[in-house]
């Protein structure tokens, strides 16, 4: 019984974490207005602190976009991201190439979670970018990533 409880204790937080990536309650309004006007308000846990700092250091060259902010807002958002960043050992580094910005789609965690997704699905016209979580995770905007909520770009349900 004790062993069973220990097993449950070990597995419950993990599965909960996998399904829910809720926005931390301390998210400043600027995080929504500045970041989420162009893309999903990515859960800060998807990148490690060092990677968020790299992203926030060059906002005028933000993955091909100019996302520059006044310094006060920039700092406020960076502090929020770092405060809620992922554990670097669990999420892994999002480093792509030496001179490129880290990507949350390049972490070991992201790759492990998506290794069953076929190349054709990634390339589907509706997807556009692997960081377009909402292309398949229908409730991504609410921070919910349950498997049964997944609808692939061609309309089929996800089956393991």
């Amino acid at each position: 019984m004790r062993r069973y409880l220990m097993f449950l204790a070990a597995i419950i937080p993990f599965s909960a974490q996998a399904d829910k990536l809720l926005m931390p309650v301390d998210a400043p309004p600027a995080f929504q207005t500045e970041c989420a006007s162009c893309h999903l308000a990515f859960p800060p846990a998807l990148l490690a602190a060092a990677d968020w700092k790299r992203v926030m250091a060059v906002l005028d060259k933000h993955y091909g976009d100019n996302a520059s902010l006044d310094d006060k807002t920039r700092q406020l958002i960076e502090e929020f991201l770092v405060r809620n960043s992922g554990d670097s050992k669990k999420v892994g580094a999002g480093r792509t190439a030496p001179n490129e910005l880290p990507r949350l789609t390049a972490t070991a965690w992201f790759k492990r979670k998506h290794h069953e997704v076929a190349p054709a699905d990634w390339r589907h016209a509706k997807v556009k970018s692997p960081a377009n979580c909402a292309a398949c995770h229908t409730r991504a905007a609410e921070g919910s990533y349950r498997e049964r909520e997944i609808v692939m770009p061609d309309g089929r349900r996800w089956e393991d």
């Binding site: 989420a36 006007s37 162009c38 893309h39 999903l40 993955y63 091909g64 976009d65 509706k126 997807v127 556009k128 970018s129 960081a131 377009n132 909402a134 292309a135």
Partner: peptide
């Protein structure tokens, strides 16, 4: 829609 991220505008 944002042409890179597909986010509705």
């Amino acid at each position: 829609r944002h042409v890179v991220t597909d986010k509705p505008i």
